[in-house]
């Protein structure tokens, strides 16, 4: 297992200008955690979910607005609110 990497996955090959990206990492005591991250819309409704990578990272392609990230890992659930804009990358570090 690799260690945790700061920030979300590498953006090489991603058309950042046209996408609204929310990404980051999930860690416990600085180490990456295998789990899931859900993206909830402003009404709290599920929009998408991804498993974290081996380095604890995740990424969503959203729309501009306010979103909630919910990390689900064995034994814990943690929410983070994030504002996203088109052409920008919202980086979110979630410690559980």
């Amino acid at each position: 297992m690799c260690g945790a990497k700061a920030g979300g996955p590498d953006l090489a090959g991603v058309d950042v200008a046209s996408e609204t990206i929310i990404q980051g990492s999930v860690t416990r005591d600085g180490e990456p955690v295998n789990g899931y991250v859900r993206l909830l819309d402003e009404g709290g409704e599920f929009t998408a979910e991804v498993p974290t990578s081996a380095t604890g990272q995740f990424r969503f392609f959203a729309a501009p607005g306010t979103w909630t990230l919910r990390a689900l890992v064995p034994g814990a659930t943690v929410d983070r609110v994030v504002a996203a804009q088109q052409g920008a990358v919202a980086e979110v570090a979630i410690a559980v």
Binding site: V14, D15, S18, E19, T20, L39, D41, G43, E45, F46, T47, A48, E49, V50, R59, F60, F61, A62, A63
Partner: peptide, 19 residues
């Protein structure tokens, strides 16, 4: 689909590129 896909704000689930 999610409310954002239904309304037309998103074209795919948000773990996929939107183009």
């Amino acid at each position: 689909r999610s409310p954002d896909e239904f309304s037309g704000r998103l074209l795919a689930p948000a773990h996929l590129p939107q183009e």
